[in-house]
């Protein structure tokens, strides 16, 4: 299977890449990892006239940590997040290792996945749970927005055709607490998109009170979702079984799945509840994934 013919322009600097997107706009697609785009092109379901390859743009590479805050260059591969060591962000590696398959993770990028905006993809839910921000820019200016303003609809984002994602920022968890995070992905086999994915993270103070909570959902709506209602219930409270159960129910009610061959609407909603409950219970019980955070 061969893609339709296209022009290929490789950018070596961010400015060069921005010039290309400025010039070709809708006719062009950014080629980062290519793990979603190239299969679509091979199946001839996508046929951009121009591919702008940003793999050689050094400014877009690298992950840095400052005061617990993570800055991910737009070319950060899934495997980098899988094998990186960021104890204050336990959710990140646990989610990364469940994306697609290990070989795809070597090429596929975090920002590429966000730009593709498949509601069943994993990073959307994870980064919504973590209250991440996306930095985008065009030839003239840079702007940043919280994740929840980034996703507009299925395969549709706030990104303009002349813009490129430059960075993803994951904020530091609140100081002086225990941070826990889990990603549950119900998949039919490795390499499958999520039937339902649930990212749960929370920071607890020494007394077990929730300082912050994040819950993101995959594949249960037209976009990745943030269960803000459930998050609010948790903040300031202790993670009792009753509270956990309540939050899980609220998160399920905040989801709006479609029934399909992967499961009914009812099933998917129930899975949101099950996974939110499991995630919060695991955080409440501590265990190896919970790490001490010191200022």
């Amino acid at each position: 299977m061969f893609p339709e013919a296209f022009a290929y322009y490789a950018a070596h600097t961010l400015d060069e890449a921005l010039d290309y997107v400025d010039q070709y706009g809708y006719d062009a697609k950014i080629l980062a990892g290519g793990q979603s785009l190239l299969p679509l092109m091979k199946l001839r379901l996508a046929a951009p006239a121009v591919l702008i390859d940003i793999n050689a743009v050094a400014e877009l590479t690298g992950v840095t940590e400052t005061d617990g805050q993570l800055h991910l260059g737009a070319l950060t591969r899934h495997s980098t997040m899988e094998f990186g060591c960021w104890p204050q962000h336990p959710l990140v590696a646990e989610a990364a290792q469940q994306i697609a398959d290990p070989i795809v993770r070597n090429r596929g990028t975090v920002a590429g996945s966000l730009a593709h905006a498949d509601p069943a993809a994993d990073w959307g839910a994870v980064l919504l749970a973590l209250n991440a921000r996306v930095e985008v820019r065009d030839k003239h200016q840079s702007r940043a927005m919280p994740m929840r303003e980034f996703f507009i609809d299925t395969f549709t984002t706030a990104l303009q055709p002349t813009e490129i994602i430059t960075r993803v920022e994951i904020p530091a968890p609140p100081a002086f607490g225990y941070v826990g995070g889990h990603y549950y992905k119900l998949e039919r086999k490795v390499g499958d998109f999520a039937v339902v994915g649930v990212a749960v993270t929370a920071t607890l103070d020494q007394g077990g009170r929730v300082l912050s909570a994040g819950i993101g959902l995959s594949a249960v709506g037209t976009t990745s979702l943030k269960a803000t209602g459930a998050e609010e219930i948790l903040v300031g409270q202790r993670l009792t079984p009753e509270l956990i159960s309540e939050a899980a129910q609220v998160a399920a009610s905040e989801s709006s799945p479609f029934g399909d061959r992967r499961g009914s609407e009812e099933y998917k909603r129930a899975m949101v509840q099950v996974f939110v409950e499991r995630g919060l219970l695991a955080i409440a019980e501590g265990g190896s994934r919970v790490t001490v955070h010191s200022a």
Binding site: Y8, D53, I103
Partner: peptide, 13 residues
């Protein structure tokens, strides 16, 4: 040195 699915990478890359 990194495993890649070569059907999902362009030769020019």
């Amino acid at each position: 040195g990194v495993p890649v699915k070569s059907c999902t990478m362009l030769a020019v890359q």
